[in-house]
Design a protein around this nucleic acid. Structure first.
Length: 465
RNA sequence: CUGGCCGUAGCUCAGCUGGUCAGAGCGCCGCGUUGUGGUCGCGGAUGUCGGGGGUUCGAAUCCCCUCGGUCAGCCCA
């Protein structure tokens, strides 16, 4: 770096500024609304863990094997920033042993030291759910359905659901032997970069996008033909359930997810509208052995994670889920020196209105420009004349409130504005959208967002302004 | 890690057969309207041309190195 004082966000990270960040708020609100309807509660857990949590959870995954942000803390502990959401949830379950079924959701950054490209970052953000404690395939259906409804709530329509099963651990072991035998014979036909995987992760070979490998494995044995009766019944129940939910499914025998802990159901939602190689926006599955792996009692589990950045990319590609307009209800213009701007703005805010003002003693013209930029539909103007008369001038700035400037007694302005806002549908659906923007993953924010009426959210999604 | 493309004003970019080449649009600020925004008109501020080195009388422009961005492989959300 030529100039060490010129800092930038680290590679693979990004700042999300207002007004674009309003989409993040709205997305989290949609997610929380959908999954809390299903009885899922927020789990807030640390973003870093003993590295063993992630290593035990998925030894073979690249994200864990070679992409983790790991370091020693000052106490000499080996720590890693979480590369994915599920392991921490399972660790928390093992630690606290809550009654099952334990159904939780989370929103968290995830860190992977890898190369950056479209839809892939070193810090990305996920929302997800996990349901621990029941082997019932109907839980798989519930989880997939919540994912689907979440995508629907954003307005996404052009998305495929890919579904596969990994069977039980025993099923998979038997199948892997068959598959490996098949691959060993054809090793020479595989793309050179895939040949080593025959020994280490034969199923990953099937997931390769390389042409030579694709061709050589076109008629590879399928796990669906090597399932136990129980695994087969599980998968059929899941398929039937998705049918009952009227969710279209594309069976994808080659779908192999990146983490090794999956059993039975695995699934991904992939947008058809996105060209990138990294397109999966929501993926998950069942992981019946993971709790034991992390030292807990044998406990089945199923869940999914969804990448917020990729969700927004997909929304852009479909032209849905526009950022809600961030705006305030009223802008106070004070040309008498600033006392009224200071006091009246505070008064309006205490009355529950979103109010802003200009600073620096600017002139009327500059303050009106600022009022316009704020998006406020109304300006309250205080000048010498108003002060003398004990009134304020109420000036409409956009169409919603007509064109006539009114005079309102100073003592009544807060109540007057509150009545106007409650009658104004456009402003009402924007409720709480214009405040300061805290960290999008702030719990308090998530709680606040949950107070919103789901109907408003749905309306916002369909009619972004 | 490997490779392609790209780094010029806050943003999007033009200029790149070396010689008014430091520009345009948008945005921002001010004025026209010293009490009224959004339209219009006029004016203004802001750049180590990513950084370093080299070639040259002369480099944003050519060469080398370097840093950064972006996309692709791999991997995954």
């Amino acid at each position: 770096m030529p100039d060490p004082t010129r800092f930038r966000a680290p590679k693979g990270t990004q700042d999300v500024l207002p007004p674009a960040s309003a989409r993040w708020e709205a997305l989290l609100a949609h997610f929380a609304t959908v999954v809390e309807r299903g009885g899922y509660g927020l789990l807030q857990s640390p973003m870093f863990e003993d590295i063993g949590v992630f290593q035990r959870a998925s030894e073979g995954a690249d994200a864990v094997r070679k992409e983790m942000y790991e370091f020693d803390d000052k106490g000499g502990r080996r720590i890693a920033l979480r590369p994915e959401g599920t392991a921490s949830v399972v660790r928390a379950f093992v630690e606290h042993r809550p009654p099952v079924p334990w159904k939780v959701w989370y929103a968290t950054p995830a860190f992977r030291y890898e190369n950056v490209q479209a839809g892939r970052y070193r810090q990305h953000h996920q929302v997800g759910v996990e349901a621990l404690g029941s082997p019932d395939p109907d839980v798989d259906v519930e989880v997939i359905t919540l994912g689907w409804e979440f995508l629907q709530s954003l307005g996404l329509r052009d998305v495929d659901l890919l579904l596969n099963t990994m069977g039980t651990v025993d099923d998979r072991q038997r199948y892997v032997e068959v598959l490996r035998a098949f691959l060993v014979e054809r090793r020479g036909d595989l793309d050179a970069d895939d040949r080593d995987k025959v020994d280490t992760h034969p199923m990953r070979v099937l997931d390769s996008k390389r042409r030579a490998t694709r061709d050589a494995t076109a008629d590879a044995p399928r796990i669906a033909d090597h399932l136990s009766d129980e695994s087969h019944a599980h998968f059929e129940r899941v398929r039937a359930g998705l049918g009952a939910m009227a969710i279209d499914v594309r069976l994808e025998p080659r779908l192999v997810r990146g983490f090794d802990y999956y059993t039975h159901t695995t699934f991904e939602f992939v947008p058809r509208s996105v060209e990138n190689a990294q397109a999966t926006i929501l993926g998950g599955g069942r992981y019946d052995g993971l709790v034991e792996e992390l030292g807990g009692p044998a406990t089945p589990g199923v869940g999914f994670g969804a990448g917020i950045e990729r969700l927004l990319i997909a929304c852009d590609a479909e032209g849905v889920f526009a950022a809600p307009a961030a705006r305030v209800d009223v802008f106070v213009v004070d040309v008498t020196g600033g006392d009224h701007a200071r006091d009246l703005t505070a008064e309006l805010r205490r009355a529950g209105l979103r109010a802003d003002r200009a600073f620096d003693q600017k002139g009327m013209r500059a303050q009106m420009k600022a009022a316009d930029r704020s998006g406020a539909p109304l300006a309250v103007i205080v000048g010498e004349q108003e002060v003398a008369d004990g009134v304020v001038s109420l000036r409409p700035l956009r169409g919603d409130f007509g064109a006539e400037q009114q005079t309102v007694p100073r003592s009544q302005i807060a109540g007057h504005l509150r009545r106007l806002r409650s009658n104004d549908v456009g402003a009402d659906t924007q409720a709480d959208g214009g405040g300061p923007t805290p960290s999008p993953l702030d719990v308090a924010l998530a709680r606040k967002l949950l107070q919103r009426d789901p109907d408003d959210l749905a309306q916002q999604a369909e009619e972004p302004s």
